[in-house]
């Protein structure tokens, strides 16, 4: 736990020293390729940028559906997510999320939506999928300072490569196959406590758990 604490205070120090404008400018320069493409779709309905996003994220979304055992609606999911991306691109703000994260949440919500529609008439449910699964206060609350977020995201990506396979397997079952930790435990024939501790180890290593001082 000390390690995390250390990390957090280092990040905070970094932020205090860097004036906001400078940090925004630095963040702007480190904007990733996909986020730039997505902005082009939002600003000018750029079709070639949109096509490039399709080629990169389309196969990911398709595989996402396949991992869920939704082979019969894989292409439909790709289609719905891509349509959603086009429609919402004007709302995309690179300071709040990387394009990949933004697209992941759209894919997740569309998948939930499609499964809901299969189960019942959508009128029965007064709650929109979006309302239930989206982080509240988007657009009002201060997002994580952009540079801080970009650094954190890059760090997750880098340290992810070094995670032991047993931890990656658990994360993949949770994110790609939508299994609860309990079901993962049953499937792998290990205690729930072991699954949870693998998750916690992974999250610590990825520094996803940032503010343990508030616990």
């Amino acid at each position: 736990m000390n390690v995390i604490h250390q990390q957090t205070s280092n990040i905070n120090k970094g932020q205090n020293v860097t004036p906001l404008k400078e940090s925004t400018r630095r963040a702007e320069r480190s904007k990733d390729h996909w986020s730039q493409l997505l902005e082009r779709v939002g600003h000018s309905q750029d079709r070639s940028a949109y096509h490039e996003l399709y080629q990169h994220f389309g196969p990911q979304i398709k595989y996402y559906a396949l991992s869920n055992g939704l082979a019969h609606m894989a292409e439909e999911l790709v289609q719905e997510v891509m349509i959603s991306i086009w429609r919402r691109a004007t709302l995309y703000d690179w300071r709040k999320a990387a394009a990949s994260t933004w697209i992941f949440t759209i894919a997740r919500n569309q998948r939930i939506d499609m499964l809901r529609k299969q189960k019942r008439s959508s009128s029965e449910m007064a709650m929109e999928t979006e309302d239930l699964w989206q982080i509240p206060g988007d657009g009002e609350n201060d997002p994580l300072p952009s540079l801080h977020r970009i650094i954190a995201e890059r760090r997750i990506r880098d340290s992810f490569k070094h995670l032991p396979e047993e931890q990656v397997t658990v994360l993949a079952k949770v994110y790609m196959e939508h299994k609860s930790h309990q079901i993962v435990a049953n499937e792998m024939g290990i205690p729930l406590g072991t699954v949870k501790s693998r998750v916690r180890l992974a999250l610590n290593k990825l520094k996803v758990i940032l503010q343990d001082q508030d616990l």
């Binding site: 990911q60 979304i61 595989y63 996402y64 991992s67 999320a97 990387a98 990949s100 994260t101 697209i103 992941f104 949440t105 894919a107 997740r108 982080i135 997002p143 994580l144 977020r149 954190a152 995201e153 997750i156 990506r157 992810f160 994360l171 993949a172 994110y175 790609m176 990825l206 996803v208 940032l210």
Partner: peptide, 14 residues
């Protein structure tokens, strides 16, 4: 926010 970024990485790497 961070967990959603992890989700994006999982979708990509898987």
């Amino acid at each position: 926010d961070m967990l959603n970024s992890l989700g994006a990485i999982m979708m990509d790497t898987s």
